[in-house]
C-alpha cells in the first residue's frame, strides 16, 4: 500500500467519445440515473463526463472529445476549504472524499476548477429492477453528501487485499485493479497505474510524453498549479504534421 501514487493517462488521440466510460462508471459506483431535467438544473451526477468540442467550419468540421473526471490533484483546491476534513489526500496520492464526515457545505465543489465534484441534492433513487444491481462494495451516498471520482478505490482495495491473501503483488494493468472506465474503454484511451512504479505503463507514458521532448502530454488547466495525477495526451493533428513535413 505504501509508496503508491495512482495516476491515469488519457490519450485524446484515441478517444472516440463513445461514452462507455460514463456508463461503466455510472453502474460501478452506484450513481443515480440522470434525466433531462437534472441536466438542465446542472445537478446531474457524472463522475466522468465526455466533453465535446467542435473544431473548424462546416465542411472541415471535427469533433474533439475530452473525458473529464477528478484529476486527483496533488495540490487540490478542494481540500483546504473543507471545514470538516471530509476531503483529504491519502498516502496513495488519492484525493479522498469521506462520505461519513461530509456535512455538505459544497465549498469543495465551488473551489474545484474541473467541476468534477457533485452534490446529492436528493436521496438517490433507482427503479425497482435496479435494486439488485447496485455494487455492494460502494456506499450509496445519501442526500446532502458530496461525491466524486475515487479512481474506483474499491477495486484498488480488493486487488491489494487479494494480492496479500495469495502472497503476490498488485500487477500493473490488472483488469481487476483498473477503474471501471478504463476497463470499459474500447480504444484504450485511458491507462491506469502506479506513477511511482517506473515499470508501469502510466509512468512510461508520463516519462516520454510529459517530460520527454516533443511529447504530447499536458495537465488539464496546468496554469492553476493544481498538479493533477491525470495526464492528457493531445490529439495528433494529421494536417499539421503534413505541413511540417513539406518544409
Amino acid at each position: 500500500m505504501d509508496g503508491k501514487k495512482w495516476g491515469m493517462v488519457v490519450d485524446l488521440d484515441k478517444c472516440t467519445g463513445c461514452q462507455s466510460c460514463v456508463v461503466a462508471c455510472q453502474s460501478e459506483n452506484n450513481i443515480p440515473i440522470n434525466d433531462e431535467p437534472l441536466f438542465n438544473q446542472r445537478r446531474a451526477i457524472e463522475w466522468i463526463r465526455v466533453e465535446r468540442y467542435w473544431e473548424g467550419e462546416f465542411p472541415n468540421i471535427k469533433a474533439r472529445f475530452i473525458p473529464v473526471f477528478c484529476q486527483q490533484c496533488d495540490d487540490a483546491p478542494c481540500e483546504p476549504v473543507c471545514p470538516v476534513y471530509a476531503t483529504y489526500h491519502n498516502s496513495e496520492g488519492l484525493n479522498v472524499q469521506v462520505y461519513n464526515r461530509c456535512v455538505g457545505t459544497r465549498f469543495c465543489a465551488n473551489n474545484c476548477p474541473y467541476q468534477v465534484r457533485f452534490f446529492n441534492f436528493w436521496e438517490p433513487e433507482w427503479p425497482e429492477s435496479f435494486h439488485n444491481q447496485l455494487n455492494p462494495d460502494v456506499t450509496v451516498r445519501s442526500r446532502g453528501i458530496m461525491e466524486k471520482c475515487t479512481f474506483c478505490v474499491q477495486r484498488i482495495r480488493r486487488t491489494s487485499r487479494d494480492a496479500k491473501k495469495n502472497g503476490t503483488s498488485v500487477e500493473d494493468g490488472d483488469r481487476a485493479l483498473n477503474p471501471a472506465c478504463v476497463n470499459a474503454c474500447p480504444t484504450g484511451t485511458l491507462v491506469f497505474g502506479d506513477l511511482n512504479d517506473s515499470e508501469s505503463n502510466v509512468a512510461k507514458l508520463t516519462e516520454s510524453e510529459l517530460h520527454g521532448d516533443h511529447g504530447r502530454g499536458y495537465h488539464l488547466m496546468e496554469d492553476y498549479g493544481t498538479n493533477p495525477s491525470v495526464i492528457y495526451l493531445k490529439k495528433v493533428d494529421e494536417d499539421a504534421e503534413l505541413e511540417e513535413a513539406h518544409h
Partner: peptide
C-alpha cells in the same frame, strides 16, 4: 494496520 479513511470507507 492502515488507518487511512479509505481503508474502510469508500
Amino acid at each position: 494496520a492502515p488507518t487511512d479513511c479509505t481503508t474502510c470507507h469508500y
